[in-house]
Design a protein around this nucleic acid. Sequence first.
DNA 1: ACCCTTGTTGCAAACGATTTGCATTTGCAT
DNA 2: ATGCAAATGCAAATCGTTTGCAACAAGGGT
Lengths: 137, 137
Amino acid sequence: MEQHRDYESELRQAGVRLTKPRKVILKIIGESEDHPDAMAIFRRAVKIDASISLATVYRTMKLLEELGAVHRHSFEGGPARFENADGEHHDHLIDLDTGKVIEFHSETLEKLQEQIADELGYDIEHHRLELYGRKRR
Amino acid sequence: MEQHRDYESELRQAGVRLTKPRKVILKIIGESEDHPDAMAIFRRAVKIDASISLATVYRTMKLLEELGAVHRHSFEGGPARFENADGEHHDHLIDLDTGKVIEFHSETLEKLQEQIADELGYDIEHHRLELYGRKRR
DNA sequence: ACCCTTGTTGCAAACGATTTGCATTTGCAT
DNA sequence: ATGCAAATGCAAATCGTTTGCAACAAGGGT
Protein backbone atom coordinates (compact mmCIF):
# COMPACT_ATOMS: atom_id res chain seq x y z
CA MET A 1 0.00 0.00 0.00
CA GLU A 2 1.97 2.93 -1.32
CA GLN A 3 0.75 6.03 0.49
CA HIS A 4 2.69 9.07 -0.62
CA ARG A 5 4.16 10.17 -3.88
CA ASP A 6 7.88 10.67 -4.14
CA TYR A 7 7.70 14.42 -4.60
CA GLU A 8 11.43 14.90 -4.44
CA SER A 9 12.19 12.88 -7.55
CA GLU A 10 9.17 14.32 -9.29
CA LEU A 11 10.35 17.85 -8.68
CA ARG A 12 13.88 17.04 -9.63
CA GLN A 13 12.56 15.66 -12.87
CA ALA A 14 10.58 18.85 -13.44
CA GLY A 15 13.86 20.75 -13.26
CA VAL A 16 13.17 22.27 -9.87
CA ARG A 17 15.98 22.76 -7.41
CA LEU A 18 15.71 20.68 -4.32
CA THR A 19 16.47 23.29 -1.69
CA LYS A 20 16.40 22.89 2.06
CA PRO A 21 13.16 24.82 2.59
CA ARG A 22 11.49 22.88 -0.18
CA LYS A 23 12.50 19.56 1.31
CA VAL A 24 11.04 20.61 4.62
CA ILE A 25 7.77 21.81 3.10
CA LEU A 26 7.53 18.73 0.91
CA LYS A 27 7.92 16.53 3.94
CA ILE A 28 5.22 18.44 5.77
CA ILE A 29 2.60 18.30 3.07
CA GLY A 30 3.50 14.70 2.34
CA GLU A 31 2.68 13.80 5.91
CA SER A 32 -0.34 16.06 6.39
CA GLU A 33 -3.63 14.30 6.75
CA ASP A 34 -5.50 17.56 7.26
CA HIS A 35 -5.87 20.65 5.09
CA PRO A 36 -3.36 23.15 6.50
CA ASP A 37 -3.17 26.78 5.39
CA ALA A 38 0.07 28.60 4.59
CA MET A 39 0.51 29.79 8.15
CA ALA A 40 0.01 26.31 9.56
CA ILE A 41 2.57 24.92 7.13
CA PHE A 42 4.92 27.72 8.08
CA ARG A 43 4.56 26.94 11.79
CA ARG A 44 5.29 23.28 11.22
CA ALA A 45 8.23 24.14 8.96
CA VAL A 46 9.85 26.48 11.47
CA LYS A 47 10.04 23.64 13.95
CA ILE A 48 12.22 21.73 11.53
CA ASP A 49 14.22 24.66 10.18
CA ALA A 50 13.90 27.94 12.05
CA SER A 51 15.19 30.01 9.14
CA ILE A 52 12.33 29.29 6.75
CA SER A 53 10.22 32.32 5.83
CA LEU A 54 6.51 32.59 5.25
CA ALA A 55 7.20 34.05 1.80
CA THR A 56 8.96 30.85 0.82
CA VAL A 57 6.02 28.80 2.01
CA TYR A 58 3.74 30.83 -0.25
CA ARG A 59 6.13 30.59 -3.17
CA THR A 60 6.56 26.87 -2.71
CA MET A 61 2.84 26.23 -2.46
CA LYS A 62 2.27 28.13 -5.66
CA LEU A 63 5.00 26.12 -7.34
CA LEU A 64 3.63 22.82 -6.12
CA GLU A 65 0.17 23.78 -7.24
CA GLU A 66 1.42 24.55 -10.73
CA LEU A 67 3.22 21.23 -10.82
CA GLY A 68 0.03 19.51 -9.80
CA ALA A 69 1.53 18.22 -6.58
CA VAL A 70 -1.00 19.93 -4.32
CA HIS A 71 -4.50 21.29 -4.54
CA ARG A 72 -5.48 24.68 -3.24
CA HIS A 73 -8.89 25.19 -1.67
CA SER A 74 -10.47 28.51 -0.79
CA PHE A 75 -13.16 27.66 1.66
CA GLU A 76 -15.51 30.38 2.89
CA GLY A 77 -13.93 33.14 4.94
CA GLY A 78 -10.42 32.14 5.68
CA PRO A 79 -7.06 31.59 4.06
CA ALA A 80 -6.40 29.09 1.28
CA ARG A 81 -5.84 25.56 2.49
CA PHE A 82 -3.78 22.88 0.81
CA GLU A 83 -3.75 19.14 0.46
CA ASN A 84 -1.40 16.90 -1.42
CA ALA A 85 -2.65 15.61 -4.73
CA ASP A 86 -2.43 11.95 -3.84
CA GLY A 87 -5.45 9.75 -4.37
CA GLU A 88 -8.48 10.41 -6.52
CA HIS A 89 -10.66 13.43 -6.84
CA HIS A 90 -13.07 14.24 -4.05
CA ASP A 91 -15.25 17.07 -2.83
CA HIS A 92 -15.53 18.59 0.63
CA LEU A 93 -18.01 18.90 3.43
CA ILE A 94 -16.98 21.60 5.90
CA ASP A 95 -18.19 21.30 9.46
CA LEU A 96 -19.40 24.80 10.34
CA ASP A 97 -18.89 24.22 14.06
CA THR A 98 -15.38 22.82 14.02
CA GLY A 99 -13.99 23.82 10.63
CA LYS A 100 -13.15 20.18 10.07
CA VAL A 101 -13.08 19.06 6.45
CA ILE A 102 -14.66 15.78 5.43
CA GLU A 103 -13.88 14.34 2.04
CA PHE A 104 -16.40 12.50 -0.08
CA HIS A 105 -16.85 11.35 -3.61
CA SER A 106 -19.87 10.50 -5.70
CA GLU A 107 -19.55 9.26 -9.22
CA THR A 108 -23.23 10.00 -9.78
CA LEU A 109 -22.65 13.60 -8.77
CA GLU A 110 -19.70 13.94 -11.09
CA LYS A 111 -21.62 12.51 -14.00
CA LEU A 112 -24.55 14.75 -13.29
CA GLN A 113 -22.35 17.84 -13.34
CA GLU A 114 -20.86 16.85 -16.64
CA GLN A 115 -24.27 16.25 -18.06
CA ILE A 116 -25.46 19.68 -16.95
CA ALA A 117 -22.43 21.40 -18.42
CA ASP A 118 -22.90 19.43 -21.58
CA GLU A 119 -26.49 20.58 -21.92
CA LEU A 120 -25.29 24.15 -21.59
CA GLY A 121 -22.74 23.55 -24.32
CA TYR A 122 -19.70 23.51 -22.06
CA ASP A 123 -16.79 21.23 -21.23
CA ILE A 124 -15.87 21.32 -17.56
CA GLU A 125 -12.26 22.18 -16.83
CA HIS A 126 -12.67 21.73 -13.11
CA HIS A 127 -15.30 22.30 -10.51
CA ARG A 128 -15.74 23.15 -6.90
CA LEU A 129 -18.33 21.61 -4.68
CA GLU A 130 -18.43 22.41 -1.01
CA LEU A 131 -21.15 21.50 1.42
CA TYR A 132 -21.31 23.55 4.61
CA GLY A 133 -23.20 21.89 7.41
CA ARG A 134 -23.51 20.83 11.00
CA LYS A 135 -23.41 17.40 12.54
CA ARG A 136 -26.87 15.99 13.05
CA ARG A 137 -27.51 14.95 16.66
CA MET B 1 -44.76 39.29 -13.61
CA GLU B 2 -43.29 40.77 -10.47
CA GLN B 3 -39.52 41.00 -10.97
CA HIS B 4 -37.92 42.61 -7.97
CA ARG B 5 -38.57 42.47 -4.29
CA ASP B 6 -39.53 45.61 -2.46
CA TYR B 7 -36.36 45.82 -0.45
CA GLU B 8 -37.19 49.17 1.08
CA SER B 9 -40.27 48.00 2.94
CA GLU B 10 -38.54 44.75 3.86
CA LEU B 11 -35.64 46.60 5.40
CA ARG B 12 -37.90 49.05 7.16
CA GLN B 13 -39.72 46.10 8.64
CA ALA B 14 -36.44 44.61 9.79
CA GLY B 15 -35.83 47.79 11.78
CA VAL B 16 -33.15 49.09 9.45
CA ARG B 17 -32.86 52.79 8.81
CA LEU B 18 -33.55 53.80 5.27
CA THR B 19 -30.67 56.16 4.64
CA LYS B 20 -29.75 57.86 1.42
CA PRO B 21 -26.73 55.63 0.64
CA ARG B 22 -28.78 52.55 1.33
CA LYS B 23 -31.53 53.63 -1.00
CA VAL B 24 -29.01 54.16 -3.74
CA ILE B 25 -27.32 50.79 -3.21
CA LEU B 26 -30.65 49.04 -2.95
CA LYS B 27 -31.72 50.53 -6.25
CA ILE B 28 -28.49 49.40 -7.88
CA ILE B 29 -28.59 45.80 -6.76
CA GLY B 30 -32.30 45.66 -7.46
CA GLU B 31 -31.63 46.56 -11.08
CA SER B 32 -28.44 44.53 -11.57
CA GLU B 33 -28.73 41.61 -13.89
CA ASP B 34 -25.05 40.75 -13.53
CA HIS B 35 -22.90 39.84 -10.51
CA PRO B 36 -21.12 43.08 -9.56
CA ASP B 37 -18.39 43.28 -6.93
CA ALA B 38 -18.20 45.97 -4.23
CA MET B 39 -16.10 48.27 -6.38
CA ALA B 40 -18.52 48.00 -9.30
CA ILE B 41 -21.43 48.78 -7.01
CA PHE B 42 -19.49 51.71 -5.61
CA ARG B 43 -18.80 53.10 -9.07
CA ARG B 44 -22.45 52.88 -10.01
CA ALA B 45 -23.48 54.41 -6.68
CA VAL B 46 -21.18 57.40 -7.00
CA LYS B 47 -22.90 58.36 -10.23
CA ILE B 48 -26.14 58.74 -8.31
CA ASP B 49 -24.74 60.25 -5.13
CA ALA B 50 -21.13 61.39 -5.25
CA SER B 51 -20.76 61.40 -1.48
CA ILE B 52 -21.17 57.66 -0.98
CA SER B 53 -18.08 55.89 0.36
CA LEU B 54 -16.74 52.46 -0.46
CA ALA B 55 -16.85 51.58 3.24
CA THR B 56 -20.59 52.11 3.22
CA VAL B 57 -20.96 49.85 0.21
CA TYR B 58 -19.14 47.11 2.10
CA ARG B 59 -21.15 47.70 5.25
CA THR B 60 -24.40 47.69 3.33
CA MET B 61 -23.58 44.54 1.41
CA LYS B 62 -22.79 42.77 4.65
CA LEU B 63 -26.05 43.97 6.11
CA LEU B 64 -28.06 42.89 3.09
CA GLU B 65 -26.37 39.52 3.12
CA GLU B 66 -27.29 39.02 6.76
CA LEU B 67 -30.86 40.00 5.98
CA GLY B 68 -30.91 37.50 3.17
CA ALA B 69 -31.49 40.17 0.55
CA VAL B 70 -28.37 39.37 -1.45
CA HIS B 71 -26.04 36.46 -1.98
CA ARG B 72 -22.29 36.75 -1.86
CA HIS B 73 -20.17 34.66 -4.21
CA SER B 74 -16.43 34.21 -4.02
CA PHE B 75 -15.45 32.89 -7.39
CA GLU B 76 -11.86 31.85 -8.03
CA GLY B 77 -9.33 34.65 -7.81
CA GLY B 78 -11.13 37.94 -7.51
CA PRO B 79 -13.26 39.98 -5.16
CA ALA B 80 -16.63 38.83 -3.82
CA ARG B 81 -19.51 39.36 -6.21
CA PHE B 82 -23.11 39.92 -5.29
CA GLU B 83 -26.50 39.20 -6.70
CA ASN B 84 -29.91 39.98 -5.32
CA ALA B 85 -31.73 37.12 -3.71
CA ASP B 86 -34.73 37.18 -6.01
CA GLY B 87 -35.84 33.97 -7.61
CA GLU B 88 -34.95 30.45 -6.62
CA HIS B 89 -31.64 28.94 -5.75
CA HIS B 90 -29.19 28.21 -8.54
CA ASP B 91 -25.58 27.28 -9.04
CA HIS B 92 -23.02 28.78 -11.37
CA LEU B 93 -21.03 27.82 -14.43
CA ILE B 94 -18.16 30.21 -15.01
CA ASP B 95 -16.89 30.59 -18.56
CA LEU B 96 -13.12 30.46 -18.23
CA ASP B 97 -12.61 32.38 -21.44
CA THR B 98 -14.99 35.25 -20.86
CA GLY B 99 -15.59 35.24 -17.12
CA LYS B 100 -19.29 35.15 -17.88
CA VAL B 101 -21.48 33.54 -15.24
CA ILE B 102 -24.21 31.16 -16.32
CA GLU B 103 -26.84 30.15 -13.81
CA PHE B 104 -28.36 26.71 -13.68
CA HIS B 105 -30.40 24.58 -11.36
CA SER B 106 -30.87 20.85 -10.97
CA GLU B 107 -33.24 19.42 -8.44
CA THR B 108 -31.59 16.03 -8.84
CA LEU B 109 -28.25 17.55 -7.96
CA GLU B 110 -29.65 19.24 -4.88
CA LYS B 111 -31.25 16.06 -3.68
CA LEU B 112 -28.08 14.12 -4.27
CA GLN B 113 -26.06 16.55 -2.19
CA GLU B 114 -28.49 16.32 0.66
CA GLN B 115 -28.39 12.58 0.50
CA ILE B 116 -24.60 12.56 0.63
CA ALA B 117 -24.51 14.91 3.61
CA ASP B 118 -27.15 12.82 5.28
CA GLU B 119 -25.09 9.69 4.88
CA LEU B 120 -22.19 11.48 6.53
CA GLY B 121 -24.41 12.49 9.42
CA TYR B 122 -24.70 16.15 8.49
CA ASP B 123 -27.39 18.70 7.76
CA ILE B 124 -26.45 21.08 4.99
CA GLU B 125 -26.62 24.74 5.91
CA HIS B 126 -25.70 25.87 2.44
CA HIS B 127 -23.49 24.76 -0.38
CA ARG B 128 -21.41 26.07 -3.18
CA LEU B 129 -21.18 24.49 -6.58
CA GLU B 130 -19.22 26.12 -9.33
CA LEU B 131 -18.36 24.59 -12.67
CA TYR B 132 -15.44 26.15 -14.50
CA GLY B 133 -15.42 25.36 -18.18
CA ARG B 134 -15.12 26.40 -21.78
CA LYS B 135 -17.71 26.56 -24.50
CA ARG B 136 -17.66 23.45 -26.66
CA ARG B 137 -17.18 24.22 -30.32
C1' DA C 1 36.80 19.80 -4.08
C1' DC C 2 35.98 24.35 -6.18
C1' DC C 3 33.92 27.61 -9.18
C1' DC C 4 30.01 29.77 -11.68
C1' DT C 5 25.76 30.52 -13.11
C1' DT C 6 21.32 30.92 -12.09
C1' DG C 7 17.57 29.84 -9.31
C1' DT C 8 16.05 30.55 -4.60
C1' DT C 9 15.86 32.72 -0.23
C1' DG C 10 14.76 36.07 3.61
C1' DC C 11 13.40 40.41 4.61
C1' DA C 12 10.53 44.17 4.37
C1' DA C 13 7.72 46.77 1.83
C1' DA C 14 3.67 46.68 -1.39
C1' DC C 15 -0.56 44.74 -2.43
C1' DG C 16 -5.82 44.15 -3.01
C1' DA C 17 -9.89 43.30 -0.60
C1' DT C 18 -12.22 44.26 3.33
C1' DT C 19 -12.94 46.02 8.08
C1' DT C 20 -12.77 49.30 11.79
C1' DG C 21 -12.21 53.57 15.15
C1' DC C 22 -13.83 57.81 15.62
C1' DA C 23 -15.79 62.27 15.17
C1' DT C 24 -19.66 63.99 12.53
C1' DT C 25 -24.09 63.61 10.44
C1' DT C 26 -28.67 61.75 9.81
C1' DG C 27 -33.05 59.14 10.19
C1' DC C 28 -36.96 59.07 12.49
C1' DA C 29 -39.66 58.36 16.86
C1' DT C 30 -41.23 61.68 20.11
C1' DA D 1 -38.77 70.94 16.00
C1' DT D 2 -35.67 68.08 19.27
C1' DG D 3 -32.85 64.31 20.83
C1' DC D 4 -30.57 60.19 20.55
C1' DA D 5 -29.14 56.09 18.61
C1' DA D 6 -27.74 54.43 14.36
C1' DA D 7 -25.23 55.23 10.12
C1' DT D 8 -21.77 57.79 7.56
C1' DG D 9 -17.17 59.31 5.61
C1' DC D 10 -12.55 59.30 6.18
C1' DA D 11 -8.30 57.36 7.11
C1' DA D 12 -5.85 54.06 9.26
C1' DA D 13 -5.74 49.15 10.33
C1' DT D 14 -6.17 44.38 9.14
C1' DC D 15 -5.66 40.00 6.70
C1' DG D 16 -3.85 37.00 3.31
C1' DT D 17 -0.73 37.06 -0.20
C1' DT D 18 2.79 38.77 -3.53
C1' DT D 19 6.99 41.09 -4.88
C1' DG D 20 11.69 43.79 -5.34
C1' DC D 21 16.06 43.21 -4.14
C1' DA D 22 20.46 42.01 -2.26
C1' DA D 23 22.51 37.94 -0.19
C1' DC D 24 22.85 33.08 -0.70
C1' DA D 25 23.12 28.24 -2.13
C1' DA D 26 22.12 24.08 -5.55
C1' DG D 27 24.25 21.29 -8.51
C1' DG D 28 26.43 21.04 -13.29
C1' DG D 29 30.95 21.65 -15.19
C1' DT D 30 36.11 21.68 -14.31
